[in-house]
Amino acid sequence: MANIKSAIKRVRTNDKKRSLNLAKKSDMRTAIKQVEKYVEANDVENAKTALNATIKKIDKVVQKGIIHKNNGERHKTRLIKKVNNLGA
Results as ranks from 00 to 15, higher is better:
M1K: 03
A2Y: 03
A2D: 05
N3K: 07
I4Y: 02
I4V: 08
K5R: 12
K5E: 15
K5A: 15
K5Y: 00
S6L: 03
A7F: 00
A7W: 00
A7L: 07
I8M: 05
I8H: 00
K9F: 05
K9Q: 11
R10V: 00
V11Q: 11
R12G: 01
R12M: 05
N14D: 10
K16W: 06
K17T: 13
R18S: 11
R18N: 13
L20P: 02
L20A: 12
N21A: 00
L22M: 10
A23C: 02
K25T: 12
K25Q: 14
D27H: 10
D27P: 00
D27A: 14
M28S: 07
R29V: 05
R29L: 08
R29K: 09
R29P: 00
I32V: 14
K33T: 06
K33V: 02
K33A: 12
K33W: 10
Q34L: 12
E36N: 05
Y38L: 03
E40T: 07
E40Y: 03
E40S: 11
A41Y: 03
A41N: 09
N42R: 11
V44T: 08
V44M: 03
V44C: 01
E45C: 05
N46Q: 13
K48E: 14
T49A: 11
A50R: 04
L51G: 02
N52T: 11
A53Q: 11
A53V: 05
I55V: 15
I55K: 07
K56H: 11
K57M: 15
I58F: 02
K60G: 10
K60R: 11
V61M: 04
V61E: 03
Q63V: 09
K64T: 09
K64V: 04
G65H: 07
I66Y: 01
I66N: 05
I66F: 01
I67T: 05
I67Y: 04
I67A: 04
H68Y: 10
K69E: 13
K69Y: 05
N70T: 06
N70S: 09
N71E: 15
N71D: 14
N71R: 10
G72C: 07
G72H: 04
R74A: 15
H75G: 00
H75F: 15
H75M: 14
K76A: 13
K76H: 07
R78M: 13
I80A: 12
K81W: 00
K81H: 08
K81L: 12
K82Y: 03
L86D: 01
L86G: 02
A88C: 02
A88N: 11
A88W: 01
A88G: 09
